[in-house]
Protein backbone atom coordinates (compact mmCIF):
# COMPACT_ATOMS: atom_id res chain seq x y z
CA UNK A 1 0.00 0.00 0.00
CA UNK A 2 1.39 3.38 -0.89
CA UNK A 3 1.87 5.90 1.89
CA UNK A 4 -0.40 8.32 0.13
CA UNK A 5 -3.54 6.20 0.59
CA UNK A 6 -5.80 7.43 3.33
CA UNK A 7 -7.92 4.84 5.11
CA UNK A 8 -11.39 4.31 6.48
CA UNK A 9 -14.03 7.03 6.52
CA UNK A 10 -11.53 9.52 5.05
CA UNK A 11 -10.79 7.28 2.08
CA UNK A 12 -14.51 6.96 1.35
CA UNK A 13 -14.95 10.73 1.55
CA UNK A 14 -12.15 11.14 -0.99
CA UNK A 15 -13.76 8.50 -3.22
CA UNK A 16 -17.19 10.18 -3.21
CA UNK A 17 -15.67 13.63 -3.74
CA UNK A 18 -13.70 12.42 -6.77
CA UNK A 19 -16.78 10.84 -8.36
CA UNK A 20 -18.84 13.93 -7.66
CA UNK A 21 -16.22 16.16 -9.27
CA UNK A 22 -16.64 14.08 -12.41
CA UNK A 23 -20.41 14.40 -12.26
CA UNK A 24 -21.04 10.71 -11.69
CA UNK A 25 -21.65 8.24 -8.92
CA UNK A 26 -19.06 5.86 -7.50
CA UNK A 27 -19.06 2.24 -8.62
CA UNK A 28 -18.43 -0.33 -5.88
CA UNK A 29 -18.52 -3.87 -7.22
CA UNK A 30 -19.19 -6.72 -4.79
CA UNK A 31 -17.12 -9.86 -4.96
CA UNK A 32 -16.70 -12.60 -2.36
CA UNK A 33 -13.32 -13.93 -1.27
CA UNK A 34 -12.89 -17.61 -2.08
CA UNK A 35 -15.05 -17.81 -5.18
CA UNK A 36 -14.50 -19.59 -7.48
CA UNK A 37 -11.38 -20.11 -5.34
CA UNK A 38 -9.16 -17.94 -3.20
CA UNK A 39 -6.56 -17.08 -5.83
CA UNK A 40 -9.11 -16.47 -8.58
CA UNK A 41 -11.19 -14.15 -6.36
CA UNK A 42 -8.10 -12.02 -5.78
CA UNK A 43 -7.40 -12.01 -9.51
CA UNK A 44 -10.98 -10.80 -10.18
CA UNK A 45 -10.71 -7.98 -7.64
CA UNK A 46 -7.30 -6.97 -8.98
CA UNK A 47 -8.65 -6.91 -12.54
CA UNK A 48 -11.65 -4.81 -11.45
CA UNK A 49 -9.30 -2.42 -9.65
CA UNK A 50 -7.39 -1.89 -12.88
CA UNK A 51 -10.56 -0.96 -14.78
CA UNK A 52 -10.83 1.99 -12.42
CA UNK A 53 -13.79 1.08 -10.24
CA UNK A 54 -14.10 3.43 -7.28
CA UNK A 55 -14.24 0.99 -4.40
CA UNK A 56 -15.16 -2.53 -3.37
CA UNK A 57 -17.61 -4.43 -1.28
CA UNK A 58 -15.61 -7.51 -0.34
CA UNK A 59 -17.85 -10.47 0.56
CA UNK A 60 -17.02 -12.61 3.58
CA UNK A 61 -18.71 -16.01 3.25
CA UNK A 62 -21.23 -17.16 5.88
CA UNK A 63 -23.11 -20.43 6.14
CA UNK A 64 -26.52 -18.76 6.56
CA UNK A 65 -26.63 -15.60 4.41
CA UNK A 66 -30.28 -14.71 4.88
CA UNK A 67 -30.16 -11.39 3.03
CA UNK A 68 -28.68 -12.94 -0.10
CA UNK A 69 -30.34 -14.42 -3.16
CA UNK A 70 -29.41 -17.67 -4.85
CA UNK A 71 -26.36 -16.46 -6.83
CA UNK A 72 -24.45 -15.09 -3.85
CA UNK A 73 -25.66 -17.96 -1.64
CA UNK A 74 -24.19 -20.49 -4.06
CA UNK A 75 -20.94 -18.56 -4.53
CA UNK A 76 -20.29 -18.05 -0.83
CA UNK A 77 -21.24 -21.67 -0.12
CA UNK A 78 -18.59 -22.68 -2.65
CA UNK A 79 -16.14 -20.32 -0.97
CA UNK A 80 -16.80 -22.01 2.38
CA UNK A 81 -16.27 -25.42 0.80
CA UNK A 82 -12.94 -24.03 -0.42
CA UNK A 83 -12.04 -23.38 3.20
CA UNK A 84 -12.44 -19.60 3.14
CA UNK A 85 -12.37 -18.26 6.70
CA UNK A 86 -12.69 -14.75 8.10
CA UNK A 87 -8.95 -14.86 8.72
CA UNK A 88 -8.41 -15.72 5.03
CA UNK A 89 -10.56 -12.74 4.03
CA UNK A 90 -8.38 -10.41 6.08
CA UNK A 91 -5.29 -11.96 4.50
CA UNK A 92 -6.87 -11.34 1.09
CA UNK A 93 -7.32 -7.64 1.83
CA UNK A 94 -3.71 -7.42 2.98
CA UNK A 95 -2.54 -9.22 -0.16
CA UNK A 96 -4.62 -6.98 -2.44
CA UNK A 97 -3.04 -3.90 -0.88
CA UNK A 98 0.39 -5.41 -1.47
CA UNK A 99 -0.58 -5.97 -5.10
CA UNK A 100 -1.37 -2.31 -5.41
CA UNK A 101 -5.16 -2.17 -5.08
CA UNK A 102 -5.75 1.29 -3.65
CA UNK A 103 -9.53 1.66 -3.79
CA UNK A 104 -11.55 1.66 -0.56
CA UNK A 105 -12.61 -1.82 0.54
CA UNK A 106 -15.77 -2.35 2.57
CA UNK A 107 -15.98 -5.80 4.15
CA UNK A 108 -19.47 -7.28 3.91
CA UNK A 109 -20.29 -10.10 6.29
CA UNK A 110 -22.84 -11.41 8.78
CA UNK A 111 -22.60 -10.94 12.53
CA UNK A 112 -21.83 -14.42 13.79
CA UNK A 113 -18.31 -14.86 12.36
CA UNK A 114 -17.37 -11.37 13.64
CA UNK A 115 -18.62 -12.26 17.12
CA UNK A 116 -16.68 -15.49 17.10
CA UNK A 117 -13.51 -13.69 15.99
CA UNK A 118 -14.07 -11.00 18.62
CA UNK A 119 -15.41 -7.59 17.58
CA UNK A 120 -12.54 -5.58 19.00
CA UNK A 121 -9.89 -7.89 17.61
CA UNK A 122 -11.67 -7.86 14.26
CA UNK A 123 -11.85 -4.09 13.86
CA UNK A 124 -8.18 -3.85 14.84
CA UNK A 125 -7.12 -6.56 12.38
CA UNK A 126 -9.35 -5.20 9.60
CA UNK A 127 -7.71 -1.81 9.98
CA UNK A 128 -4.26 -3.35 9.97
CA UNK A 129 -5.10 -5.38 6.86
CA UNK A 130 -6.05 -2.21 5.01
CA UNK A 131 -9.87 -2.42 5.03
CA UNK A 132 -11.89 0.78 5.13
CA UNK A 133 -15.16 -0.24 6.70
CA UNK A 134 -17.87 -2.78 7.32
CA UNK A 135 -21.27 -3.65 5.86
CA UNK A 136 -23.32 -6.04 8.02
CA UNK A 137 -26.79 -6.86 6.71
CA UNK A 138 -28.03 -8.42 9.95
CA UNK A 139 -26.90 -5.51 12.11
CA UNK A 140 -29.48 -2.71 12.34
CA UNK A 141 -28.38 0.46 14.17
CA UNK A 142 -30.33 -0.60 17.27
CA UNK A 143 -27.88 -3.48 17.73
CA UNK A 144 -24.84 -1.71 16.36
CA UNK A 145 -23.68 0.58 19.18
CA UNK A 146 -20.74 -1.57 20.32
CA UNK A 147 -19.50 -2.31 16.81
CA UNK A 148 -19.96 1.35 15.80
CA UNK A 149 -17.83 2.53 18.71
CA UNK A 150 -15.06 0.05 17.87
CA UNK A 151 -15.12 1.15 14.22
CA UNK A 152 -14.99 4.79 15.27
CA UNK A 153 -11.90 4.05 17.35
CA UNK A 154 -10.15 2.61 14.29
CA UNK A 155 -11.48 5.23 11.89
CA UNK A 156 -13.39 2.54 9.96
CA UNK A 157 -16.75 3.18 8.36
CA UNK A 158 -19.83 1.22 9.42
CA UNK A 159 -22.55 1.53 6.81
CA UNK A 160 -26.10 0.86 7.95
CA UNK A 161 -28.96 0.04 5.61
CA UNK A 162 -32.19 1.69 4.55
CA UNK A 163 -34.95 -0.07 2.64
CA UNK A 164 -38.15 1.00 0.89
CA UNK A 165 -40.01 -0.10 4.03
CA UNK A 166 -38.02 2.27 6.29
CA UNK A 167 -40.12 4.92 8.03
CA UNK A 168 -38.96 8.53 8.23
CA UNK A 169 -38.04 7.91 11.88
CA UNK A 170 -35.78 5.07 10.79
CA UNK A 171 -34.26 7.13 7.99
CA UNK A 172 -33.32 9.77 10.55
CA UNK A 173 -31.91 7.14 12.91
CA UNK A 174 -29.80 5.48 10.22
CA UNK A 175 -28.57 8.82 8.88
CA UNK A 176 -27.42 9.69 12.38
CA UNK A 177 -25.71 6.34 13.06
CA UNK A 178 -24.17 5.45 9.69
CA UNK A 179 -20.58 6.32 8.92
CA UNK A 180 -19.03 6.30 5.45
CA UNK A 181 -22.34 5.97 3.64
CA UNK A 182 -25.86 4.61 3.87
CA UNK A 183 -26.47 1.40 1.96
CA UNK A 184 -29.83 1.96 0.32
CA UNK A 185 -31.58 -1.27 -0.60
CA UNK A 186 -33.35 -0.56 -3.88
CA UNK A 187 -36.15 -3.06 -3.39
CA UNK A 188 -37.89 -5.20 -0.80
CA UNK A 189 -36.15 -8.50 -1.27
CA UNK A 190 -32.82 -10.28 -1.24
CA UNK A 191 -29.74 -9.64 -3.38
CA UNK A 192 -29.90 -10.70 -7.01
CA UNK A 193 -29.95 -9.28 -10.51
CA UNK A 194 -33.30 -7.86 -11.68
CA UNK A 195 -34.24 -6.88 -15.20
CA UNK A 196 -35.70 -3.55 -14.14
CA UNK A 197 -35.19 -1.08 -11.35
CA UNK A 198 -38.25 -0.45 -9.14
CA UNK A 199 -40.60 2.16 -10.63
CA UNK A 200 -40.81 4.24 -7.45
CA UNK A 201 -37.04 4.36 -6.85
CA UNK A 202 -36.76 8.10 -7.41
CA UNK A 203 -39.46 8.87 -4.86
CA UNK A 204 -37.85 6.55 -2.35
CA UNK A 205 -34.41 8.16 -2.77
CA UNK A 206 -35.95 11.63 -2.47
CA UNK A 207 -37.70 10.54 0.72
CA UNK A 208 -34.33 9.39 2.09
CA UNK A 209 -32.52 12.55 0.97
CA UNK A 210 -34.92 14.74 2.91
CA UNK A 211 -33.53 13.28 6.14
CA UNK A 212 -30.07 12.02 5.34
CA UNK A 213 -28.32 15.37 4.91
CA UNK A 214 -24.74 15.01 3.70
CA UNK A 215 -24.37 11.27 4.27
CA UNK A 216 -23.62 9.66 0.89
CA UNK A 217 -26.18 7.17 -0.42
CA UNK A 218 -25.02 3.97 -2.09
CA UNK A 219 -27.66 1.97 -3.90
CA UNK A 220 -27.62 -1.81 -4.11
CA UNK A 221 -29.76 -4.92 -4.81
CA UNK A 222 -30.91 -5.63 -8.35
CA UNK A 223 -28.55 -3.36 -10.28
CA UNK A 224 -27.11 -5.45 -13.10
CA UNK A 225 -27.32 -3.64 -16.45
CA UNK A 226 -25.76 -0.56 -18.09
CA UNK A 227 -29.23 1.06 -18.30
CA UNK A 228 -29.62 0.69 -14.53
CA UNK A 229 -26.23 2.32 -14.03
CA UNK A 230 -27.23 5.19 -16.31
CA UNK A 231 -30.52 5.64 -14.45
CA UNK A 232 -28.96 5.94 -10.99
CA UNK A 233 -26.17 8.40 -11.92
CA UNK A 234 -28.04 11.53 -10.94
CA UNK A 235 -29.88 9.80 -8.12
CA UNK A 236 -27.27 8.44 -5.71
CA UNK A 237 -23.63 8.91 -4.72
CA UNK A 238 -22.67 5.35 -5.42
CA UNK A 239 -23.97 1.97 -6.53
CA UNK A 240 -23.13 -1.63 -5.87
CA UNK A 241 -23.36 -4.49 -8.36
CA UNK A 242 -23.09 -7.95 -6.85
CA UNK A 243 -24.89 -10.97 -8.23
CA UNK A 244 -24.34 -10.08 -11.91
CA UNK A 245 -20.58 -9.84 -11.37
CA UNK A 246 -20.48 -12.97 -9.24
CA UNK A 247 -22.24 -14.86 -12.00
CA UNK A 248 -19.63 -13.56 -14.46
CA UNK A 249 -16.93 -14.50 -11.94
CA UNK A 250 -17.68 -18.13 -12.62
CA UNK A 251 -16.04 -17.59 -16.03
CA UNK A 252 -12.94 -15.97 -14.61
CA UNK A 253 -11.38 -12.56 -14.10
CA UNK A 254 -11.55 -11.52 -17.76
CA UNK A 255 -15.31 -12.09 -18.03
CA UNK A 256 -15.88 -10.20 -14.79
CA UNK A 257 -13.68 -7.33 -15.92
CA UNK A 258 -15.55 -7.14 -19.25
CA UNK A 259 -18.91 -6.90 -17.49
CA UNK A 260 -17.57 -4.31 -15.05
CA UNK A 261 -16.43 -2.17 -18.01
CA UNK A 262 -20.02 -2.08 -19.24
CA UNK A 263 -21.25 -1.11 -15.78
CA UNK A 264 -18.81 1.74 -15.27
CA UNK A 265 -20.38 5.10 -14.55
CA UNK A 266 -20.54 7.60 -17.38
CA UNK A 267 -20.53 11.06 -15.92
CA UNK A 268 -21.49 14.42 -17.36
CA UNK A 269 -18.31 14.68 -19.38
Amino acid sequence: MSDARTQGVTALETMFAAAKAEGRSAFLPYFPIGYPNYEESLAVIEALAKTGVDGFEIGIPFSDPLADGTVIQAATQKALENGTTLRACLAAVRELRVRGVEQPMMLMGYMNPFMRYGLERFTRDAKAAGADGLIIPDLPPEEGAVFAELCRKEGLALAFFLAPTSSSERIALVAQQASGFIYVVALTGVTGARTELPADLTNFIQRVRQQSGDVPLVLGFGISQPEHVQAVQKLVDGYIVGSALVRAGEHGAEATRALAERLMPRGAL
Binding site: P137, E143, T165, S167
Partner: peptide
Protein backbone atom coordinates in the same frame (compact mmCIF):
# COMPACT_ATOMS: atom_id res chain seq x y z
CA UNK B 1 -32.36 -11.87 22.21
CA UNK B 2 -32.65 -8.61 20.29
CA UNK B 3 -33.24 -8.05 16.60
CA UNK B 4 -30.45 -8.94 14.19
CA UNK B 5 -32.31 -8.70 10.90
CA UNK B 6 -32.04 -6.83 7.60
CA UNK B 7 -33.39 -3.28 7.69
CA UNK B 8 -36.28 -4.24 5.39
CA UNK B 9 -37.79 -6.27 8.25
CA UNK B 10 -37.26 -3.79 11.08
CA UNK B 11 -40.45 -1.82 10.34
CA UNK B 12 -42.37 -5.10 10.01
Amino acid sequence: GGRFVPETLMPA
